[in-house]
Simulated assay, not measured.
Amino acid sequence: MTLNRRPVASLWIGEKLHYINQLCLKSHLLHGHPVTLYCTDKVTNAPEGVVIRPATEIMEIDMALVEATSASFLSNVFRYKMIRKTGALWIDCDAFCHKPFPDEWEYVFAGHGMRGALNCGVVGLPVQCQLMDMLLDYYDNLPDYPAWWGKKQRKQMDRNTEKGGLSHAAAIYKTERTAFGPQAFTYFAQQSGDYDKAMTPDVLYPVPFQLNDVFFDPYGRVEGHFTDATVSVHLYTNGTKPWWRQNPPLKNSYVARMCDQVGIDPAQALGE
């Protein structure tokens, strides 16, 4: 395959990819995007053509903090440091490439779901820009409370902190999981004046998170959510029911059809 489009990259914390992750990474290769997967461990089941690099090339990964929060917490920091260092487009490992990303797209992000907030599952930013500076400063110099929190969240965080045993970052995460992901991205895009650069949800997140079971429904009409502008399809593995992680997708479901199209055998990389 000819890899002559803009490079994309992601992070994997763990030793084994699930078949959905294999599917999504390979889909970018098939559309001509060089794919780099930064890893904390030795990953042996990445699709052929995916370049494996140590995550430490971008930043040190605090595994104790990962244990106290989640892999997604560190990925929220990692993606911006990766973009600044390499200029690659960030893709979550559950973002399926429907069509190639145009090279001329400088700001790549969109709203998602049914609430209108921005998501950061697929992100492209100029290496030097105010939004990037704000995001990195937020993660490197965490405030007492995120600026957009109200009294309810602040009181809840105080209770989490009083319980002891949590770092400041973990206490914020335990109070509101998305405070390091979509909430932060949305707030700082507003502050930098870049919020209006957001693409419409159909470009990157055509199916709302609340409807993610449709990907596994053999009678679902996933493509009914797509438009001519759709480039990426987020599969939302953080909301996938355990059954679909531990069993192959049903024949004719969107995920099963895409596995056939891309050449991924789900039975070889099921969850435990």
Rank of each mutant, 00 (worst) to 15 (best):
Q22R: 14
A179E: 00
D265H: 12
Q191I: 05
H225G: 02
S70H: 12
M1L: 15
G49A: 09
D144F: 06
D213Y: 08
I61M: 10
L37S: 10
G113S: 08
M114I: 11
R5T: 09
T237E: 05
T200S: 14
F185H: 09
S72C: 07
K42T: 14
H112P: 10
E223A: 12
L211D: 14
E60P: 00
D217F: 03
D62W: 08
M258W: 12
Y80L: 09
N21Y: 06
F109L: 07
K163R: 15
L250Y: 06
A229S: 15
E67W: 08
N119T: 06
V77Q: 13
A184L: 15
Y236D: 08
P201H: 06
C259M: 13
A71L: 00
Q210C: 07
K251F: 07
L136K: 02
R53A: 11
M132T: 06
N76K: 00
L89F: 11
P126A: 10
P126W: 13
N4S: 15
K99L: 09
L142V: 06
V50Q: 05
C97R: 04
C39R: 05
P102Y: 13
G49P: 06
I61G: 04
L17W: 09
G121V: 05
Q22N: 06
F96N: 08
K251E: 15
T69R: 01
N160P: 00
R257P: 00
R84Q: 15
R6N: 07
V122H: 01
I58R: 04
W243K: 15
K26L: 07
L142I: 10
A229C: 07
K16S: 08
W105T: 06
D137N: 14
L89P: 01
L166C: 04
E176N: 11
K99I: 01
L74S: 12
Y195N: 07
L131G: 05
D228Q: 08
L11A: 11
C129R: 09
G116E: 06
Y138L: 02
P248M: 09
T237D: 12
R221I: 00
A110E: 07
V35Y: 12
Y195L: 13
K241V: 13
W105V: 09
G111D: 06
R79P: 03
D144G: 09
K85W: 00
V43F: 04
L136D: 09
N119E: 14
W148I: 01
Y19G: 08
L30R: 12
K197H: 15
E15H: 12
A198N: 13
K85H: 02
R5L: 05
T230Q: 10
R245T: 08
I91R: 06
M134L: 13
E104A: 15
T175K: 00
G116V: 00
N247C: 13
W105P: 03
T178G: 01
E223W: 04
L30S: 13
A95T: 08
V262T: 01
E162V: 06
K174L: 02
S232W: 07
V50F: 07
L204R: 02
Q190S: 03
V43L: 10
G193F: 10
L74E: 14
